[in-house]
Deep mutational scan, measured.
Amino acid sequence: NKFNKELQWATWEIFNLPNLNEEQVKAFIDSLRDDPSQSANLLAEAKKLNDAQA
């Protein structure tokens, strides 16, 4: 299933962003679980936040 692979990839990527704190990671993962179809958008937002906090 396409969404499942995207969800797994986005989850792994978010867990490995070095500049997000635990609460931010949890919030993004919760959002992914709530709406897996938004995984690409949520990953992009997480990466933006990660870069901003570098």
Rank of each mutant, 00 (worst) to 15 (best):
L32I: 13
E23G: 05
A40N: 12
E23M: 06
T11L: 14
N4M: 05
A10M: 06
D34T: 11
Q24M: 03
S39R: 05
T11R: 06
A54H: 10
A52I: 12
A40Q: 11
F28Y: 08
L17D: 00
L43Q: 03
K5H: 14
L17K: 01
K47Y: 14
N41G: 11
S37K: 08
Q38M: 09
L49V: 12
A40H: 09
F15E: 15
L17V: 01
K5W: 14
A44E: 13
S37A: 06
Q24K: 01
P36Y: 04
N1D: 15
D35F: 10
L20M: 01
L42W: 08
N19D: 05
P18F: 06
W12P: 02
F15G: 15
A10F: 15
S39K: 05
A44H: 07
F3S: 03
T11V: 11
K2E: 15
A52M: 14
S31G: 11
Q8T: 07
L7K: 02
E6S: 02
N1L: 04
I14Y: 01
A52L: 12
F3A: 04
S37D: 07
N16M: 08
I29P: 00
D51A: 14
L7Y: 10
K2V: 14
D34N: 05
N4E: 15
K26F: 08
A44K: 13
Q24P: 00
K5T: 15
L7I: 13
D35P: 01
F3E: 13
A10N: 04
D35E: 07
A52N: 09
L42E: 02
F3D: 15
K48V: 09
E6F: 10
A40I: 13
K47H: 11
S31N: 07
L17R: 00
E22K: 12
P18N: 07
P36K: 02
L17E: 00
F3N: 08
R33Q: 11
S31E: 06
N41F: 08
S39L: 07
N21D: 13
K48Y: 10
E22G: 11
S37W: 06
F15L: 15
T11E: 14
E22S: 14
E45Q: 15
L7M: 07
A40K: 13
N41K: 14
V25L: 06
L32A: 05
Q24T: 04
L42I: 15
L7G: 04
E22Q: 13
N21H: 06
E45M: 10
F3K: 02
D30E: 08
D35R: 09
L49H: 03
A46Y: 07
D30T: 12
E22H: 07
L49I: 10
P18R: 06
S31M: 14
N50L: 01
S31F: 12
E23L: 11
E23P: 05
F3R: 00
N41D: 05
S37N: 08
S31Q: 13
P36R: 02
I29H: 04
D34Y: 12
A54W: 10
L49N: 04
A46Q: 01
V25D: 00
D34P: 01
I14W: 02
Q53G: 07
E22N: 11
A44I: 11
A52S: 10
K47Q: 06
D51Y: 06
D34G: 10
E22I: 14
W9I: 08
D35Q: 09
E23K: 08
K47R: 11
L49R: 03
Q8E: 15
I14R: 01
D34S: 07
W12Q: 15
Q53Y: 07
A27D: 12
I14P: 02
N19G: 04
R33M: 15
K48W: 10
P18T: 08
K5M: 08
A52K: 12
E23Q: 09
W12A: 15
R33T: 12
N4L: 08
N1W: 00
W9A: 14
V25I: 09
Q8V: 12
K5D: 15
N21E: 07
L42S: 02
L32K: 00
L20H: 00
S37V: 07
W9M: 14
A27S: 14
E6N: 05
S31H: 13
L43P: 00
D34Q: 14
F15Y: 15
N41L: 11
N16K: 10
E45A: 11
Q24N: 02
E13P: 02
K5P: 05
D30I: 12
A10Q: 04
N19R: 01
D34R: 13
N41S: 13
D51N: 10
E6H: 07
D51K: 10
R33F: 14
A10Y: 14
L20S: 00
L7S: 05
D30G: 08
T11Q: 09
N50T: 00
D30A: 13
P36Q: 04
F28G: 00
F28L: 06
L49P: 00
R33H: 14
A10T: 09
A27G: 10
N19Q: 05
W12D: 15
F28N: 00
P36G: 03
E23R: 11
N4F: 09
I29L: 10
N19T: 03
I14D: 02
N21T: 14
F15W: 14
Q8H: 07
P36E: 04
L32G: 01
L17M: 15
N16Y: 05
S31V: 08
L49Q: 04
E45D: 03
Q53R: 03
A44N: 10
N21A: 08
S37R: 05
L20Y: 00
A27R: 14
P18L: 08
L42G: 01
Q38V: 08
L20V: 01
A54E: 11
Q24F: 02
